[in-house]
Amino acid sequence: MTLEAIAEEFADVDDETRLELLLDYAVRLPPLPPAYHALRDAGVNMIHECQSPVFMTVEVTGGTVHLYADVPREAPTPRSFVSILVRAFDGQPAHHVLEAPDDLLYRLGLTHLLGMQRIHGLSAIYRHTLSEVARQL
């Protein structure tokens, strides 16, 4: 599913539906492949700006982006956002990922829904993902 399609899914729905959509994404985060468990457990590639332990490894191979992520179920909000990024970016060409808009959280309607105080950890996840793609390209 493209980022544009996801943004469309979040546009024009009320806040309650938007929360349900997020919860649904939180549930659907693919399990972290066992090969990455050791990295996660060693605390590598953690996004420190998030209060909950958010693990995100970004790999660019042959110009294609791969995301491997894990977020505890007790932190459904960052988990849902990570799940959106995995769905939108995993398997996509890097140059396409780097065209993603700076104001994604706003476009998804999350800035208003979560409030300023809760949005920053998500911004950090987003920045980390895009800057890792750019660095490895």
Partner: peptide, 9 residues
């Protein structure tokens, strides 16, 4: 909660 989605889980 701090996390707005946690209740829904």
């Amino acid at each position: 909660n701090e996390d707005v989605l946690l209740y829904g889980t």
